[in-house]
Design a protein around this nucleic acid. Structure first.
Lengths: 217, 217
DNA sequence: CGGCCAAATGAACGACCGTTCAGGGGCAGT
DNA sequence: ACTGCCCCTGAACGGTCGTTCATTTGGCCG
């Protein structure tokens, strides 16, 4: 057995052969998203992506410098949008840190439910980018974590949050990481087919977060 | 530029050339763990693994049928051990669901802090296994989630837990998923070099979990 | 010392990779 | 009708992949 590309839960057929209607650069982005999400960056070939939108391998290089740049392009765009949405949600939520936290969770979780494919790729495939390109994605991640830490710090200062201690100290960064981990990975298992809606998910996670940080009612 | 394998945050040198002391099958397992964790299954070559323990490519096939079987072997062993530890911790914790939950979190989080490499591989590389082999890993995952759901159900029944609602219903499975997500992904960012110990992490996460499910004091 | 066999070697195989590039078709402006 | 430009094609390049296999090694038993 010398075959390669058994590839992530044996998805087989790219199927599509007819040319995508959209401008080619967007068709490529969309096809790449789908393929990366289903089978993972390193096993998806340039030929796979281009076949999926009805073109041939070489045409990719009229729109992107490399397969690596394509991945960075699609990750960076969704990551930037996410950062923008989070900032906006917090800014619009008023001064109460409880409202800020709830607004943040709502936006973050609902986006990770609705745009599962994009979130999945952005969070699972970063490691394949070369060092230069990965840096600004990580910066955006840190910025988002910073927003959460800021909300927690304000809540503690205002006497509205009473988060658990870690080794005697209040480690707000660890708590923010723990919360972000659970919000982010919703995209790994939530299915829109179930009986629970995105709205329900957002409220559930917001409740759990407020309880976890010891928010006063 | 036609090179391949820039490979996950540009780790370069396997370095080791001298033969590993241990019996070869264990040396191979150890080297594979390290390499898969650092760079990811699909970009780590058989040649990389064998060079890292001082052997040549062909020798792998005296011990494993394929690269795929090697991955399954190392994932299945740590997954099985994890399942066993979780069951044991819950069994030894007595009848109070609060103690059970705390004991579970303690074992689960501490293991994911201490054996970061193993946990990382087991959780990130599953997707590369073929359908047959991935099945029993998923069964073990479901079993572990089942333990958590069982603890929550008992806590609710005993009137000791008051978990948040999701869309009017109590969705214990969703809550268990959310909690397991945060416990599992500790292995992605916890570094033993920091000021916070594994013990602190276990307590922090146990506190957050008990608060999230509304445990009575 | 000779025979045995598990284990290791390293060349070889067939396949596929990301990327390049000469060639060509279609359509705007002149 | 001609030019120029954009975009696509598909063969080709140099390289790496997982796996196989004839051959060699090296330790143990008699």
């Amino acid at each position: 057995m010398t075959k390669r590309k058994p590839a992530r839960t044996e998805v087989v057929a790219p199927a599509v052969v007819e040319r995508d209607q959209r401008p080619p650069i967007e068709a490529i982005r969309a096809a790449a998203f789908q393929q990366f999400a289903e089978r993972g960056y390193p096993v998806v070939t340039v030929r796979d992506i281009m076949k999926a939108c009805g073109l041939t391998q070489g045409a990719l290089y009229n729109h992107f410098k490399s397969k690596d740049e394509l991945l960075h392009d699609i990750i960076a765009s969704t990551q930037g949008e996410l950062e923008r949405l989070c900032q906006q949600a917090v800014a619009e939520a008023g001064g109460d840190p409880r409202a800020k936290l709830a607004a943040f969770v709502r936006v973050y979780v609902m986006r990770h439910c609705r745009l599962r494919v994009e979130a999945l790729v952005a969070n699972r495939e970063i490691g394949w980018l070369d060092a230069g390109r990965v840096a600004d994605i990580r910066r955006s991640r840190r910025a988002i974590r910073g927003i959460v830490v800021g909300i927690l710090a304000q809540g503690v200062e205002d006497g509205l949050f009473d988060p658990p201690l870690a080794g005697g100290r209040r480690d707000l960064k660890a708590i923010a990481m723990a919360l972000l981990d659970q919000w982010t990975h919703v995209s790994m298992w939530y299915g829109p087919g179930g009986e629970i809606t995105e709205e329900d998910m957002a409220r559930l996670y917001a409740d759990m977060a407020l309880r976890a940080v010891g928010a006063r009612p």
